[in-house]
Write a protein that binds this DNA or RNA. Structure first.
Lengths: 235, 235
DNA sequence: ATTGTATAAATTGTATCCAATTTGTGGGGG
DNA sequence: CCCCCACAAATTGGATACAATTTATACAAT
């Protein structure tokens, strides 16, 4: 058997099964049936359970076993609020310390790519992954450049909750005009954030980034199970 | 053998050994020697390693094994900044939603206990654990009452870094007069925070709580290894 | 003398076995 | 008729055995 590979495979398989809904929220998970279902022994499953508990995807079910975490809309809103203050802190720190030319270049590249996406005045379905990708790079650049590792760690935990991360984007294919307006607004915020960071305006950068996180809250108004609603996931 | 107990014992033992410095920062940990040293098999140690990695006390050392995380003063400052914005968010949410009478009672009890501690105008060494305990209850009450579970989760990760938590208090026994002033100032901030929450002043409560977190930064000016400096740990 | 390769030792991951605890069910007693 | 206790079944945690990978060291060749 290939050492080191089985555990990782079990981990990503369980993550996928949970976020895809194959394992229902609240469902109790036992080691033996899952191990047999995946064709491995109980040991990799045990390790994966602990890992997934730390990631927030599983919760301990009483004294025995784990259960898929049921996440309420209120919890998603709470996680988005947390993301807002954390990314707001990152933006303020970066503005106060001053962004290097390299960081500003990265951010401005994201701005340019977005400008190209939105200049047509409308939105094609194929544009969504492009926006998702540049959005991920934009936020990651600010968090990294803030120089505060604790922000990154706190966010990496928070981001495991579905819909609370910048790495997931829910798109309503039946309402591309509305989605255009929503994402275009977010992109204009990106411009303002870079402006504030480049000008060293820490408080403004922080306020803008907080409001920017709130823009994502619209996601929760979309029923993921409805026809035409797609959920894109980034790297 | 006592099932379920061994794993927990190994976990708390390793936590204590790390924070007590018995395992030096940067030191590489192997499963077999540690398991023998603790008198258990490799399995509980393996589980504990994964848990401690998630808590931020260990980091993966290349492709093989783990190492005790070396934490720099900058990282502590970063973690305190994160705590500031998270607890600030909790205080604002609580103020905006309105605190129940029960929560206000809990907070006011903490205020009264602190008033009694500081009314003498000086500070005895035996007072430090009492202040630590009321401080823990004060912060826990606000975080819980905020109704945002994501804050609590983010903080529980962040708090595992030494000195970044409200649950640890460094006291310089040779400078009790200075410590009196420092903790008394923090207690006055507690009063102002409760006032803002009770009055529904969200922005004020948030600003106060952020500044309150910064008051802890003085901890980092104390060399933990110096004579007379004691580090108290709460529940 | 230095570098590359091969072999050996150490360490990590995986599987199976055993013990202990918990939960569910059935029977007996109040 | 309901409740409590006991026993059985299931499930989880711990230990040991085994396989695979990585690293270090030694020897040889250039």
């Amino acid at each position: 058997m290939s050492s080191e590979r089985t555990g990782q495979r079990v981990l990503v398989t369980l993550r996928r099964m949970i976020s895809a809904g194959e394992l229902a929220a609240g469902e109790r998970l036992a080691e033996i049936p899952l191990a047999e279902r995946l064709g491995v022994s109980r040991m990799p499953v045990r390790m994966a359970f602990r890992e997934l508990e730390q990631e927030g995807l599983l919760v301990r079910a009483g004294a025995r076993g784990f259960a898929v975490r049921a996440v309420s809309p209120e919890q998603i809103i709470g996680a988005v609020e947390v993301r807002g203050v954390l990314e707001g802190l990152a933006a303020r720190l970066l503005a106060e310390r001053g962004a290097s030319e390299a960081v500003l270049d990265t951010l401005k590249t994201c701005l340019k790519e977005g400008d190209a996406l939105f200049e047509n005045g409308c939105f094609a379905e194929a544009d969504a992954p492009l926006y998702l990708d540049l959005n991920i790079r934009f936020h990651a650049a600010i968090i990294q450049a803030s120089g505060n590792l604790a922000i990154q760690e706190a966010l990496s935990r928070n981001d495991h909750l579905p819909f609370a991360s910048v790495k997931a984007l829910a798109i309503d294919r039946n309402n591309l005009a509305a989605e255009y307006k929503r994402l275009n607004y977010a992109h204009i915020q990106h411009h303002a954030i870079v402006e504030a960071i480049a000008a060293g305006q820490g408080a403004r950068a922080e306020a803008l980034m907080r409001e920017h996180a709130n823009a994502v809250l619209r996601y929760t108004e979309l029923d993921p199970a409805r026809e035409g609603v797609a959920i894109l996931r980034g790297s």
